[in-house]
Nucleic acid binder design. Structure first.
Lengths: 111, 111
DNA sequence: TTTAATACCTTGTATCGCAAAGTACCAATA
DNA sequence: TATTGGTACTTTGCGATACAAGGTATTAAA
């Protein structure tokens, strides 16, 4: 049951997910669960099975590193930290995003 | 050669492709090749193998219909026409898009 | 010692864009 | 009439990716 619109909505979210992750981590380091919380607060529904592989991908691309930290209430947390390369890529993502926004504006308001 | 950024750029485009198609067809009917031209002009690179299945999908969802028209120079063209339902969905896509834009703004400029 | 909460990770599935190859129609030209 | 080139539509196979679902491990409280 496809609900066209929900599908489109989730497609649009997908396109900017990596951008959102890097953006969050550019402000302060964070661990997966807290990133999910922050995304949820911003109306970007993301689940664990999506986020973990994505963080690992970005780490493998050199955009992130991480360190373990003990928690007072539960297992240790893997705090991800944005790298210098990550910041460079983030800034290129800013451009890419602006470009898409312009494109949509052009297409949507043209004439 | 993954070029992270080009990958992200294309991910972002994917997310709004259906939106762009409906948007173009909301102004006037068009056939596949002309849609590709228009998208190219707007900086959205799309190829046949992407567009045709997508048009068929949207037609099957009742967002589009089509009619054949003879061409003076080549085989007949399949002109796609947006339906009433298509216009409704397009307007919901407008909302979805605005929401994503707000989300990004919130995440990107927060603090 | 069992339960609940927190946190990390993996597997299988479905979707989707894209490259590439295929089919068909038409017109001009050899 | 046979061939070539241009236009247009369609299909197949592949790779990437989000997500549902299930799994492991640690800690603290009941």
């Amino acid at each position: 049951m496809d609900s066209t619109v929900e599908n489109v909505r989730s497609q649009m979210r997908k396109g900017v997910l990596e951008y959102c992750i890097l953006s969050i981590l550019s402000r302060k380091e964070a661990y997966a669960s807290s990133i999910i919380e922050e995304l949820k607060a911003a109306n970007m529904i993301v689940v664990e099975g999506t986020l973990y592989p994505l963080l690992i991908r970005q780490k493998n691309q050199g955009l992130l590193s991480y360190r373990w930290e003990e928690s007072t209430q539960g297992p240790p947390r893997k705090y991800y930290v944005i790298t210098e390369k990550g910041r460079e890529i983030l800034s290129e993502m800013d451009s890419a995003w602006q470009e898409i926004v312009s494109t949509i504006n052009a297409l949507r308001n043209h004439e």
